[in-house]
Design a protein around this nucleic acid. Sequence first.
DNA 1: CGAGGCATGTAATACGTTACATGATTTC
DNA 2: GAAATCATGTAACGTATTACATGCCTCG
Lengths: 176, 176
Amino acid sequence: MAANHVSFRYFVLGLLARQSMSGYDVKRLLKSLSWLIGSPSFGSLYPTLHDLLKDGLTTMEVVPRESKPPRKIYSITQAGRQVLQDWVDQPATPNAPLKAFVMRLILASNFSNAGLIAHLEQRRLQVADHQAALERVASEIDETDLRQYLAIDYALAIANAEMAWLDSTLDQLLVQ
Amino acid sequence: MAANHVSFRYFVLGLLARQSMSGYDVKRLLKSLSWLIGSPSFGSLYPTLHDLLKDGLTTMEVVPRESKPPRKIYSITQAGRQVLQDWVDQPATPNAPLKAFVMRLILASNFSNAGLIAHLEQRRLQVADHQAALERVASEIDETDLRQYLAIDYALAIANAEMAWLDSTLDQLLVQ
DNA sequence: CGAGGCATGTAATACGTTACATGATTTC
DNA sequence: GAAATCATGTAACGTATTACATGCCTCG
């Protein structure tokens, strides 16, 4: 139920776990990371912040400023940290989109090493599946039209790069 | 206005331009390509198909089968091809998500060489921007926590791979 | 004999974007 | 002096997912 909403909610909570900040700050941070995960509009960000507050996962402090609208600084609570930890420790859903993987990757780096490794290994399995599926498709169209092959070739290039990164990163984490 | 919906609509139309098929066939095809673009549910696919038909961009033929529900085969019309061509020839929106790029890449391979090159060059500019943004973020956090650097490193690895693919593919297309 | 694929479709619900509202300050 | 950034928020609207409804066939 509502996996996207839930993960975005927790992702925002995770950003607040690193550092207390205002909604505007969250937006700015998200924008700088927007390439692979996108950046939600204020229309969904502010209500999310209000929900987290209402559920006791954050607290909010109004910081007034002279002749400017006051900033509202959100901080994570103990309850919030617990909920976040539980979420990060959960195994990823089987066919999670790239976006979900990256969001968890950003947060997982704050938590247990074992969880991080599990997360990467889970992703490795998925990427391997995708590679196989892409190669299957490639073998079917290869001979007909080179132009049609472009998109598959692109996807394979990305998948191979991701696989290489996962392998080398897992190596480094396991050696430690 | 509703760029996502519009592009998905046209993307389906583009798949029908390659080959006439049923809604179920479209779903299967989308699933095989689902890695980078996702695969919509029937709840949005069937209404989209109905819309395209209603707007005269496709025709539909009911193919009955003994003791099975009949299949509904959709084919693109001349009007549909025109609309599709116009859409493909449009320059990509400035900050289009990866998904939109891939959808257009899949379709662009069916159309003009010049349009395809323009599409790739447009994307090249965007990826270069992203690389710069990621490196800016990387330089800010580098020294503090190596674990936090992971997600940035991941994104950079993907961006670099995409850049390499774009360069080599553009080379090939321009030589011809 | 149950699970999953084939094949279509609708309705309720949840989600997200766009547009609106307000207003000072900084940058070109 | 216009445009962008800072800073918050709500309401209308569009879009998508999930769940429901139906039913046969095939593979293990």
